[in-house]
Design a protein around this nucleic acid. Sequence first.
DNA 1: CTGCATCCGACCCGATACTG
DNA 2: CAGTATCGGGTCGGATGCAG
Lengths: 115, 115
Amino acid sequence: MPRVLKKPSSTGCSVERALSLIDGKWKIVILYKLLRGTLRFNELRRLIPGVTQRMLTNQLRELEADGLIVRVVYAQVPPRVEYSLSARGESLEPVLLALKDWGDTNLSSIEAQAA
Amino acid sequence: MPRVLKKPSSTGCSVERALSLIDGKWKIVILYKLLRGTLRFNELRRLIPGVTQRMLTNQLRELEADGLIVRVVYAQVPPRVEYSLSARGESLEPVLLALKDWGDTNLSSIEAQAA
DNA sequence: CTGCATCCGACCCGATACTG
DNA sequence: CAGTATCGGGTCGGATGCAG
């Protein structure tokens, strides 16, 4: 497994470094979905149309490695894995909500213009 | 110039679509730097260590196409091009500030843990 | 159900050289 | 100063198949 340094990070300002933790095609959406509570793997998959299981796994692993989410595995058959926000992940709530508010307010006009 | 469809977008929820406007390696940082006021091309370049002029140009073009920034060219020698936030770009301020606050608060502990 | 391994194409993005 | 053009490698990410 590569799992190499994709984040040399410490490039610049705090915004830039904060960004490195949530960059990735799906991380913010995942975090946003988890705001409402714990979700299982396939529940997340259904909530995020377009994500492949490979990418979902990858992004979840990175979020876990960065301490933003918690992964709990129940040793049973069938397997059951639950993902939830860590305290640190929850601290991102203002950012996520600000982004959603902005989207709700501005997306329609922007998409209309772009078309 | 390709400038093709890199954003099929309209994939899912509002957060996801909002995200598509600010994804890209440098967009959020650029927007954040412009919060403080108008900047010229090379000023931005100096403020964002690590960005290449190619990427800076690309990201500025996309931000302009999405109506988040305004590009003003002064016909003179030497050339002078100024970038500033559009009204829509300024409306992102809560998001950008929330992200910076989060970074300031949590980055040190996260980076300590990661190490 | 929840993954991991592999193949493989697409594109991102850096380096470099050149222009008005 | 503020770009554009081109080359090329590295990575992202989709599809598929297999496993516990």
